[in-house]
Design a protein around this nucleic acid. Structure first.
Length: 636
DNA sequence: GCCGTTTTCGGCCCGACTGTTTTCAGTCG
């Protein structure tokens, strides 16, 4: 997968070596195979990848690698069972288990036996045993049996529009379709047209999807989705009869990538959404249109689902379309338990609507405080709400400064003075200049001599500044063996040392982990930058034991960065939450290479909120005096 | 396959839209 300049994630050319899993979204993998990319690597392929990289004898899997491997296996189980026509609730149980596993902030290896696994929500004795089997053997007999029964190519068909498990099974049974090429032939030879259940409309849809190329869900970086969402919102807002427009869905939950846009349009019931949308300049086609619901395709290929609701339903509609699906299911079950019914139109007792106009009203009627959208993933937020212990999530205004920025002394685009001006313009009280060290070949990194001159220049500058301080820093490379790329003497002169991995991403897991742990032992390191090295949709996190890294950061102490570049957002939400649970402070850093990029922190704030972080969990959400004290604690 | 303060069996969230059904199944969110 590659992130294009528009942020749209596309199939990566052959030879790409990574499975890319972002939050709960699993992107294509092309792991040496010749076939078309598939969603969520089959376990077999993950095993092959792991085997290439980690010699069996020394393999010590990361919690995250284990988690993703197991979650992917359960996702595959779910799809194969669905195609076989098994009980949909059984299918759902596997999907839910995969979600639960992805959201775990504790390494699976810490769970002692199946009893503890069994205690996880949605995991019973059977799934606990399967997790255990995967943990110990990295295989799953039940999955291997299923694979022998269901042709591998059928899973990919599920990604085509209009094809669900029932029709895929019908294609296989009636036309002996075993994969996408078989389907293409069935369409071309007219066999599909003669098959009952596949009328001209459905066939046309399939033909268009097949012509468009790969059958796979696409996801956009949140920042790219915003470029489509905000103009569409403004357009709708300007229409007659429309009171309010909200972008809901994963966009509102602030996920780092977004699959499509969900818009809740509050207006008069006689508003003709479809007619209005036909006049929208960015429209490619109208996919479906009813009186209350429309699906459109935008010119860039992004899909938007719109729902027209009345004012009395705005809150319940917003809750419903914000999701996540698992969060909604929990809310609806909660309503059921109280003899109520929750749908997008409101919360009902019998036919009487008892809530619905605002989200707060709906949650209150369910006995809960309002839950911020970023937390609605069924990762403990409902339990926390019940206990009245939801975190007070950090906000943009809480940030007092930024601890990671570059100037044109290394690979930045603007001189120090411009960066300071931009930081002051944003109301910040301090900015750490952390240009690259020299080791990195692709940038004009600083050696000890140039860094010494920058330190002197910053000292002189600070003497002239009022109510603003430039912190002296560096983004120093962690060498392959865990040493840092600059000598101790120069690092001692700095206020903040941000250490980062920029090379040797494919070291075996144990070596990568030891490398980073060694770097964290350095007496000057304050912050580990972009801790997993991922580039969303392009490069997976490197193999490392992040549980050990978090524990080391806690013990030392030093801090972990949440890099706010929209294509990094590294750490992800689950790792942020894990850092918080281990009481490791986080630096939300713009990693700006120009003054305007200091605004990156809005993406970091979104991710931090998804990771349950409060202002107290964030280093740079404190005044400079406290930040200095915290940085001093990292000096050994 | 999970789950339970009515339940260890029988439930499992709910509704819109499409297409080809001739009264509703399948898909999607």
């Amino acid at each position: 997968m590659l992130a294009t300049s528009h942020g749209r994630l596309q199939a990566r050319p052959r030879g790409c070596d990574a499975s890319v899993c972002v939050g709960t979204a699993c992107f294509y993998v092309s792991i040496g195979g010749d076939g078309p990319p598939t969603v969520a690597a089959p376990l077999r392929e993950v095993q092959e990848l792991t085997a290439q990289r980690v010699p069996r004898a020394t393999a010590r899997s990361t919690p995250s690698a284990h988690k993703e491997e197991i979650a992917a296996a359960f996702d595959e189980m779910a799809e194969l069972l669905a195609i076989r026509g098994e009980n949909p609730f059984r299918v759902r149980a596997y999907q839910r288990a995969a979600q639960v596993i992805r959201g775990l902030t504790r390494p699976l290896a810490e769970f002692r036996g199946t009893k503890e696994l069994d205690a996880l929500p949605g995991i019973g004795a059977d799934l606990a045993a399967k997790i255990d089997e995967l943990l110990h053997t990295r295989r799953l007999a039940a999955l291997e049996r299923l694979r022998r029964q269901v042709p591998a190519g059928l899973r990919e068909l599920l990604n085509l529009p209009g094809l669900g498990p029932v029709r895929v099974r019908a294609l296989n049974r009636k036309l002996h379709v075993r994969g996408i090429e078989d389907l293409r032939r069935a369409v071309a030879t007219g066999r599909l047209a003669r098959t009952s259940g596949f009328g001209p409309a459905l066939q046309g849809r399939l033909e268009r999807a097949l012509a468009a190329g790969t059958a796979a869900p696409k996801r956009w970086l949140w920042s790219a989705a915003a470029e489509s969402a905000e103009p569409l919102r403004s357009f709708l807002q300007s229409l007659n009869g429309i009171a309010e427009v909200e972008v809901a869905g994963s966009y509102r939950r602030g996920r780092d990538t977004v699959g499509d846009l969900d818009l809740v349009v509050c207006g008069r019931p006689d508003v003709d959404l479809a007619a209005a949308l036909r006049r929208y300049g960015d429209l490619q086609s109208l996919v479906a249109a009813g009186p209350t619901r429309c699906t459109v395709l935008l010119r860039n290929g992004m899909q938007a689902d719109l729902r027209l609701v009345g004012r009395r339903s705005l809150g319940s509609a917003l809750t419903y379309f914000t999701g996540s699906r698992d969060h909604n299911i929990r809310l609806r079950r909660r309503a059921q338990e109280r003899g109520l019914k929750l749908n997008e139109y409101g919360l009902f007792r019998g036919h009487r609507r008892i809530a619905g106009a605002t989200e707060k009203e709906v949650y209150r009627a369910l006995g809960l405080p309002w839950i911020p959208p970023e937390l609605r993933e069924d990762r403990g937020e409902i339990e926390a709400a019940e206990r009245r212990s939801l975190p007070k999530l950090i906000e943009l205004g809480d940030l007092c400064g930024d601890l990671h920025a570059h100037t044109d002394a290394s690979d930045g685009n603007e001189p120090l003075a411009r960066m300071i001006e931009a930081a002051r313009g944003r109301g910040l009280g301090f900015l750490a200049i952390t240009d690259h060290s020299r080791y990195l070949g692709i940038v004009r990194g600083l050696d000890a001599g140039r860094l010494a001159r920058q330190i002197d220049a910053i000292d002189a500058l600070n003497a002239t500044l009022r109510e603003f301080v430039v912190l002296k820093g560096v983004e120093v490379d962690i060498l392959e063996d865990g040493r840092l790329a600059l000598p101790l003497a120069i690092l001692r002169r700095l206020d903040v040392v941000v250490a980062a991995v920029h090379s040797h991403f494919t070291l075996p897991e144990t070596r990568q982990t030891e490398r980073i742990l060694r770097a964290l032992e350095h007496p000057c390191v304050s912050i580990l930058a972009h801790p997993t090295g991922r580039l969303i949709g392009e490069r997976a996190a490197y193999a490392a034991d992040f549980g050990r890294i978090i524990a080391a950061a806690r013990a030392r102490p030093c801090y972990l960065e949440l890099n706010a570049q929209p294509s990094r957002l590294d750490m992800d939400d689950v790792m942020c939450k894990s850092a918080r649970e281990h009481r490791v402070l986080v630096s939300i850093a713009s990693d700006a290479h120009a003054g305007s990029q200091l605004a990156n922190v809005v993406h970091g704030i979104r991710q931090a909120r998804r990771g349950w972080l409060t202002a107290a969990d964030v280093v740079n959400a404190r005044p400079l005096r406290e930040v200095r004290a915290l940085l001093a604690r990292t000096r050994l």
